[in-house]
Every structure is written in structure tokens, then in C-alpha cells.
């Protein structure tokens, strides 16, 4: 029965694998290039793009592959940010983070805790939200995320409205986290891991089922698949991943505030997925680069850069299909004989 969706072991096409490897190498030597060009400020910028890309990639798992329009992804991203901030604070004060567990100054510990907390939050929100579908699902995920936003807004012990600065970054062993390059490589490692995990998921049986449910739920049910369970697992995985990305973001900025949980942040993550290309591996990262790039370039000219973002986004939604990733594919295929 369930073998209907099993497929032979996945293998990346050779051309694609070489392409990805080239991108990875390019990103690995990027700090050196930036230094050579006399633009070291680009290093943290690209680091931020990679972290946003990770968060967007986890959203893409539910949105692009699962077809579930979750409009509350900032809840997990922001939660991760707060895990980093609060655990660092508790380590300094020697009290319990969230009144539950001791703090830490280790990044890997915070990442693990954030993954668990993100997963739990996603399990709660997901199990309620997945009782509905379509427009209701959009509204409900948005509303629950807003609830988390209000919760952290009211936690005066963790800064409330003003946010929570981190006096020192969380570290990994003896690595010097004050070095922009070290931070960059941490972000790059994270991004590569997320990329590989999501690639592995999408070519697995689980990933096929998820895609199948998006394309035709009735047929999947007919071959004996329970939709809710698969979707919930995807939702939980995405929540855990986004929460980990949130830890890295807060750690890079040394600051976390309710802004990270705000619904516009969910919108931005969604825009990244769409700009880049829904349901593609590279899309979320390309979209993150496009959005952060636009913000940096347009923001240098005018404070009102979002006035330009609006029409651009509108044009992308109305007139293009497949975003930047689609465009790249089209160009690459167009050149081939």
C-alpha cells in the first residue's frame, strides 16, 4: 500500500551537484573576496542573508512542498531568538531561563533547546491549525503567531517592548564570536546543513507524500495515507528549523525584540520564498538575498524603501511564475541546445 509512493534512492543530477558545490565553494571563500575588494561590511550582510534563507527554507517546506500557507512562521523564528537571548541572560544571572532550565553561553546548547521549543510550539499550533484548511488556515496561523507576539510583548522580565540585548554572543568552544568571519562561517554551516536536510527530505518518501498531498489530497487518502499526520510532522520540522535560525539571527545581531515575532516578519519570510521561487531548494536563499539586497540598496536611497518593494512584489505575484529560481532555470535551459 504505502509502497505506492516509495521511490528508488535519490541521487542528485551530476550537473546540479557540481553547480551546488561551486556555489558552496564561492560562499566559503566569500569573506576573503570581500576583504580583497575592501568591503568587509558585506560579510555580516551575507551572513544575515544565509540566516534568513534558512528560516525561509523551513517555511518553504510547509508552504512550497506541503502547500500549507502558514502565515505565522515568525513565531518560531522569534521564539528561537528569545531562546538565545534569555539563555544568555540566565547564564549571566544564574537563574532559570523561562523559569524552566538553566541558561548557557554555548550556542550549540541554545540551538538544541530552541529546536525542541520550536517543535513543541509548532506541534501545539499545528495540531489546532491543521483542523482547518485554506483561508482559515492562513488566518489561524497568523492569529496564533500574533498571540506569541503579545506574550513576549508582555514579558517585562525579558525587555517587553524594548527587546533584550545580549551582552556577549553565545559561543562554540574556543571560537571567537566577536570575529565577523567566524559568525559568517557559523551561518554558512547552518545554511548548508538546512539545505542538505531539506533536500534529503524532499527526495524521501515523506517528502513525496507531502508533495502528493499538496497536489491531490483525495488520491493520497485513497492509497491509505493520513494527511494530517504528515502535514503535522512537516509543520513541526519547519518550526524547529525556523527556531534554530532565530537563535543564529539573535546571536549575530546580539539583540532580540518582539519585532522578530511580528506578523510582518512572517510576511517577509513568505516574500522571500515567493521572490526566490516556491517549492525549490535554492529559492528561499535567493529570495532572502533579493529581499535583504533590495532593503540594503533601496534603503540607502530612501527610508521609504518599502514603497518600492510593494509594487515589485505585486508585479512578481501577478506577472511571474516561479520567482528568481524559475527565471534562473529558464535562462539555463534556454541556453542549452
Amino acid at each position: 500500500m504505502t509502497d505506492a509512493v516509495s521511490l528508488p534512492a535519490p541521487a542528485m543530477r551530476k550537473g546540479a551537484a557540481v553547480g551546488w558545490l561551486a556555489v558552496a565553494v564561492l560562499l566559503a571563500v566569500f569573506p576573503t573576496i570581500a576583504d580583497a575588494l575592501g568591503q568587509p561590511a558585506l560579510v555580516p550582510l551575507v551572513g544575515r542573508i544565509l540566516i534568513y534563507g534558512m528560516a525561509a527554507a523551513t517555511l518553504n517546506l510547509v508552504l512550497g512542498y506541503g502547500g500549507l500557507v502558514s502565515f505565522g512562521h515568525a513565531a518560531y523564528f522569534g521564539l528561537g531568538g528569545y531562546v538565545a537571548g534569555v539563555m544568555a541572560l540566565s547564564a549571566r544571572n544564574g537563574d532559570l531561563a523561562f523559569g524552566l532550565f538553566p541558561g548557557t553561553d554555548q550556542l550549540l546548547v541554545a540551538l538544541a533547546v530552541a529546536a525542541v521549543m520550536g517543535a513543541v510550539l509548532a506541534a501545539v499550533i499545528g495540531s489546532l491549525s491543521l483542523r482547518t484548511s485554506g483561508v482559515q488556515f492562513i488566518m489561524i496561523t497568523l492569529a496564533f503567531a500574533q498571540m506569541v507576539y503579545f506574550l513576549f510583548l508582555s514579558l517585562k522580565a525579558y525587555g517587553g517592548d524594548d527587546g533584550l540585548p545580549m551582552r556577549r554572543r553565545l559561543g562554540i568552544g574556543a571560537l571567537d564570536m566577536r570575529d565577523d568571519r567566524v559568525l559568517y562561517f557559523v551561518a554558512l554551516t547552518g545554511a548548508v546543513i538546512v539545505f542538505l536536510v531539506i533536500w534529503r527530505i524532499t527526495v524521501s518518501r515523506f517528502g513525496r507524500v507531502l508533495s502528493g498531498l499538496r497536489q491531490n489530497e483525495a488520491r493520497m487518502q485513497a492509497i491509505g495515507i493520513a494527511p494530517r499526520r504528515y502535514r503535522l510532522v512537516a509543520f513541526i520540522l519547519a518550526g524547529a528549523g525556523a527556531s534554530m535560525a532565530g537563535v543564529l539571527m539573535a546571536n549575530q545581531l546580539r539583540f532580540v525584540s518582539p519585532d522578530m515575532l511580528h506578523w510582518t516578519k512572517s510576511g517577509e519570510l513568505m516574500i522571500m520564498v515567493i521572490l526566490g521561487g516556491v517549492g525549490t531548494l535554492a529559492g528561499p536563499f535567493l529570495g532572502a538575498a533579493a529581499l535583504v539586497g533590495l532593503e540594503t540598496v533601496l534603503g540607502a536611497f530612501t527610508e521609504r524603501w518599502q514603497l518600492l518593494l510593494g509594487p515589485i512584489l505585486l508585479a512578481v505575484v501577478l506577472y511571474t511564475h516561479g520567482g528568481i529560481a524559475g527565471l534562473v532555470t529558464k535562462l539555463v535551459k534556454g541556453r542549452a541546445p
Binding site: 510576511g267 513568505m270 514603497l307 510593494g310 512584489l313 505585486l314 505575484v317 501577478l318
Partner: peptide, 9 residues
């Protein structure tokens, strides 16, 4: 969602 989000902006 995205088009109307763009309208909000």
C-alpha cells in the same frame, strides 16, 4: 495573500 500584503505596504 502576497498581492494584498504588497497592497498593505
Amino acid at each position: 495573500v502576497l498581492a494584498t500584503f504588497a497592497l498593505i505596504l
